[in-house]
Amino acid sequence: MTLTPFDLGIVAVVALIGIGLYGLMVLRNLVKMIIALQIAAKGAVLALILAGIASNQLNLAQSLAATVILVDTLVAVIGLALAVQLHRTYGTIDLKMLVSRREQPLERPG
């Protein structure tokens, strides 16, 4: 049994999307979550290209993959800017600590 590049591509897609989903579920650090999102998006790009090869529409798949890369980069940039802002405001980027600090009730002085 010989593995073609297409078969190996399927293995890479499953690995990338699986690791990305696992990271999104398990991690609590915002920057690490954005990294996990990037990994899952790379799996989606690879899946698009493989679908283009399988259906003999590689150029269309490449143009769609360019859109996915652009949107993924924008999501990462905005997520990182939000993480920087949250770190300046609350001093942490840990999701659980952020939620606990948001839920602390404020009392009226006096």
Partner: peptide, 25 residues
């Protein structure tokens, strides 16, 4: 971008904690 953001926040390290149980993930 990641290096820029991490340098703005300081050299952080993430604590290996989970929000979802590992078997479920």
């Amino acid at each position: 971008l990641f290096v820029f953001a991490v340098s703005m926040m300081g050299h952080l390290s993430s604590v290996p904690t989970t929000s979802v149980s590992r078997p479920l993930a």
